[in-house]
Design a protein around this nucleic acid. Structure first.
Length: 158
DNA sequence: GCCAACGTTGGC
DNA sequence: GCCAACGTTGGC
């Protein structure tokens, strides 16, 4: 499954704020390449959450909860797009840009090569490598999200 | 705080 | 359509 890396300055919108908010509208993207990546995102795809400037590290994992639609903060609105994201897990240990640079599987990440691009694709291998380095396991999908099929069969007690 | 990278704008 | 000037971003 495709994955992504989204970038924010922690002083503007930190991952902890996303956790507090439970979800957010990822608006304000004004770069065509980043916008095109937003438009490719599918619901449920994972996003590494990177803090630029102060932290320069991936600090969390988020998930696309609503696919792209017109950015209400743009003029004209249809020229730009937003998605919704929600938090999945905070990394046990942040994975810094410096670490990514020296990790063979991560050294050629798009974000490493194009540091100014705020929405970049991530391969499955890269996602897995970041998770290993962060000593973080993705939470298992909740029983609820699997629907009825996951429930034990009902057995009559009478 | 500086500067490199890079996108945008505007003059021609 | 080119390119210089300028603004923004983000790493150092």
């Amino acid at each position: 499954m495709p994955a992504w890396l989204i970038k924010s300055e922690p002083s503007v919108y930190a991952f902890s704020q996303l956790v507090a908010d439970k979800r957010t509208v990822w608006d304000g993207v004004r770069n065509f390449e980043a916008r095109n990546n937003l438009r490719k995102m599918k619901k449920g795809e994972l996003c590494l959450y990177y803090h630029s400037n102060a932290d320069k590290a991936v600090v969390g994992v988020a998930r696309v909860s609503k696919e792209a639609y017109d950015d209400p903060t743009a003029e004209p609105r249809e020229e730009w797009s937003v998605v919704h994201i929600e938090p999945v897990v905070a990394l046990a240990e942040p994975v810094t840009l410096a670490t990514m640079r020296v990790t063979p599987e991560l050294a050629d990440m798009v974000v490493v090569k194009k540091s100014r691009l705020s929405v970049t694709p991530v391969t499955d291998v890269q996602l897995a490598a970041v998770l290993v380095l962060s000593k973080t396991a993705l939470p298992v999908p909740s029983v609820r999200s699997k629907g009825r099929a996951a429930s034990p069969p009902r057995v009559s007690r009478r």
